[in-house]
């Protein structure tokens, strides 16, 4: 009952969600935090006059993160013809936005690479990475702005699931049992157990981590795209990318179902079979080159 209401009235839903969230989050001993340089980089590039050197210097303070970022910068996925040896150079070659997003990717992958729980992190990240690539490809294919951001939105759309897995493992076990038994969508099982979904949990985390609002919104609404009231494109893209990735059977999306692409989204993005075929083809090609991303999990 509540879930149908929440679809028609997001504000109300947010209030009740927040209350439910509190219950879970209050139980968390330690809210996962990202390296401080991530926030600093985010803050630095708000200044339009900031130069590559300054951002580079901030990043170099966290040597481990810089090294991981450079590994991603030089991965086959981006395929730059020369080796890039410093983050500063990475910024001038690839742009501020993309390097910022790679820093974010590297730190999130690092934070959630595993835990003392019965959960296949590798499958989870494969699904996430696949969604990231298909979100970026889709937004390029549709000639939308800021395809780099679509990559991050795709990568982190299910981040809430990890929070549940790591910080409420017993609840996750119940969710998984329901999914297996009823063969339903994971969000339906989550509603039953948590009275909220991984989208809401993920959005809360994104907000805590000071992600850009459009990213937070895309994470929150990717299962309910037609209720979105701002940042339509990013949310729609994330919704479609998630489904494409399930169709391509990359990793594990939490359940075995391939939901239908929302009609409203289909019309709004002016999708057609050709576009989807193209995106699928390019996603498959891109996914082959993401070895370096998955290595960060080891």
């Amino acid at each position: 009952m509540n879930s149908t209401e929440s679809k028609t009235n997001p504000d109300m839903a947010e209030m009740t969600d927040t209350e439910r969230l509190k219950e879970i989050i209050e139980k968390l001993d330690d809210v996962p935090s990202l390296p401080t340089v991530v926030a600093e980089v985010n803050r630095a590039i708000r200044n339009p006059r900031v130069d590559a050197n300054t951002v580079g210097q901030i990043l170099t303070r966290d040597q481990a993160l810089s090294a991981k970022t450079l590994k991603l910068v030089n991965s086959a996925f981006y395929g730059f013809p020369h080796r890039i040896n410093s983050v500063t150079r990475a910024i001038i070659v690839m742009g501020f936005q993309r390097v910022r997003n790679l820093v974010l990717t590297a730190s999130v992958l690092d934070k959630f690479k595993g835990g003392n729980v019965d959960f296949d992190f590798s499958s989870f990240w494969k699904h996430a990475l696949g969604s990231a690539i298909s979100a970026e490809t889709l937004s390029q294919e549709l000639k939308l702005q800021e395809s780099e951001d679509a990559f991050v939105a795709g990568l982190l759309h299910d981040i809430g699931k990890l929070l549940v897995v790591l910080y409420a493992p017993e609840k996750f076990v119940r969710i998984r049992a329901i999914v297996n038994k009823k063969n339903c969508l994971i969000i339906e099982a989550e509603e039953e157990v948590l009275e909220t979904t991984h989208s809401t949990v993920g959005a809360w985390l994104a907000k805590t981590w000071q992600f850009p609002p459009k990213l937070t919104q895309a994470i929150r609404m990717h299962h309910d795209p037609q209720s979105v009231r701002e940042y339509y494109e990013m949310t729609y893209i994330t919704h479609v990318a998630d489904i494409i990735c399930r169709a391509l059977n990359f990793g594990d999306g939490g359940d075995k179902k391939i939901p239908k692409i929302n009609d409203h989204v289909w019309k709004a993005l002016k999708l057609d079979k050709n576009i989807l075929d193209n995106v699928m083809k390019k996603t498959l090609e891109g996914f082959d080159k993401t070895k370096d991303f998955l290595q960060l999990l080891q």
């Binding site: 130069d51 590559a52 050197n53 001038i92």
Partner: peptide, 14 residues
Amino acid sequence: TLETSSWLVMHMLN
């Protein structure tokens, strides 16, 4: 110089 490549300049060139 590295200062040339500010966020703003990159944005303008884009």
